[in-house]
Simulated scan of single mutants.
Amino acid sequence: MRFVIIGAGAVGGVVAGRLAGSGADVVLVARGAHLEAIRRDGLLLREADGDTRHRLPAYPAPAEVGWRPGDVAVLAVKSNDTQAVLEQLPRDVPVVCLQNGVANERAALRLFPDVYGICVMLPSAHLEPGVVVAQCAPVPGILDIGRVPGGVDDTAREIAAHLVKAGFVAEARPDIMRRKYTKLLMNLGNAVEALCGRVDGIDEVAALLGAEGETVLRAAGIAYATAEEDRQRRGEILQLVPVAGQMRGGGSTWQSLARRTGAVEADYLNGEIVLLGRLHGVPTPANETARRLVVDAARSGTAPGALSPSQLRAAIDDVR
């Protein structure tokens, strides 16, 4: 099995480095300055116990990989880039969605028979070209996997075994999308953190978005794991630690604003709740407002933390 990891950013890069360090065959697809740095210097993985550099084949597009039997396409791009990636893949390759949100698997199933979802619990960072940071130790993350729409097969078990060998906690689970909907509810707060920064008061605003999301999922008849199930799965596994003397700055959306990428995936996180709300007649003012504001912030190059929690709450109240 060869892992073709498409999107070597925070999550994809940490998984790639860990897999390569455990002896797995890994190929990267990246772009821009990040691709140039990887090709020149290798992928630098920073962890609490030191740095490792992995010199891996890296390409600018999936079409240039040179696909062969046994390859697995691991999508680690933001959801807004998924469709463009899928259109470049061989139609017989297994597709693994190492991504937040729940829309990626649906998009892949339109084109591919063998689709797998991973519930990503992997605090990580990518803020400079060629460098990714694993922010938990001694276990870097929890990466449960399953077939979509449900079930477990030999491919899922083999991928889980590779992830375990690479140091992750991972299990093949038949109800992976149920787990991913729970992670979606958690990721609704990404927009709040990015807009307001990591300050007092963001938890209360994020809770509004989460409660709205739960109401929508219940109206849509979509199953998700309970908060207690999620707590039991996480346990004490994920322990944030300083890396190179620094603690975690923020999540994926925060990092997108910090890096001035021009885009965030809020349309596929908060926007998923907005979509389901419209389909099932449930108002979603909190998620729609957060989605709109963080997308506008990304497009305008606004840095994280430009709004206070009270300002964001007022903007939500204005549209209720």
Rank of each mutant, 00 (worst) to 15 (best):
278 R>C: 05
247 M>W: 13
316 I>C: 04
239 Q>M: 11
253 T>A: 07
310 S>Q: 15
140 P>D: 08
255 Q>W: 03
110 R>N: 13
308 S>L: 14
31 R>L: 06
13 G>V: 05
157 R>E: 15
140 P>Y: 07
111 L>W: 12
261 T>M: 10
316 I>R: 09
307 L>H: 08
62 P>E: 11
219 A>D: 02
72 V>K: 08
217 L>P: 02
304 P>T: 09
93 V>S: 01
184 L>M: 12
180 K>P: 07
297 A>Q: 11
185 L>F: 04
192 V>T: 15
39 R>C: 07
178 R>Q: 13
278 R>K: 15
252 S>T: 11
41 D>S: 15
206 A>T: 11
279 L>C: 10
60 P>D: 13
219 A>M: 04
50 G>H: 08
194 A>W: 07
275 L>A: 14
280 H>C: 02
155 T>S: 06
258 A>C: 05
66 G>Y: 07
279 L>I: 05
233 R>Q: 14
246 Q>D: 12
131 V>C: 06
18 R>A: 08
130 G>D: 03
140 P>I: 12
309 P>I: 08
101 G>N: 09
141 G>C: 02
151 G>C: 09
18 R>Y: 06
303 A>N: 04
149 P>Y: 07
172 A>R: 01
211 A>K: 14
70 G>D: 08
75 L>I: 12
46 R>Q: 14
15 V>W: 00
210 G>F: 01
232 Q>F: 04
278 R>L: 11
300 S>R: 15
83 Q>K: 12
226 T>F: 02
267 D>G: 08
93 V>C: 00
209 L>T: 07
22 S>I: 03
1 M>F: 08
221 G>L: 07
265 E>R: 03
204 E>V: 14
69 P>V: 05
224 Y>E: 02
313 R>L: 15
237 I>G: 01
190 N>C: 09
164 V>M: 02
284 T>K: 06
277 G>K: 12
144 D>M: 06
120 V>F: 06
229 E>L: 09
225 A>K: 09
25 D>N: 12
297 A>V: 10
232 Q>W: 09
151 G>L: 10
11 V>I: 15
105 E>S: 06
161 A>E: 14
245 G>A: 04
140 P>G: 09
122 L>C: 08
237 I>N: 01
151 G>A: 11
40 R>K: 15
98 L>D: 06
6 I>C: 09
179 R>F: 12
217 L>W: 09
132 V>K: 03
80 N>F: 14
123 P>C: 04
71 D>T: 00
257 L>F: 08
4 V>H: 03
292 R>F: 11
13 G>T: 10
115 V>K: 00
171 E>R: 15
98 L>A: 08
46 R>V: 00
234 R>F: 04
289 T>K: 10
312 L>V: 11
11 V>E: 00
126 H>N: 15
200 D>H: 13
85 V>C: 12
55 R>K: 13
175 D>I: 10
320 R>D: 11
58 A>K: 02
32 G>I: 05
272 E>N: 05
87 E>T: 14
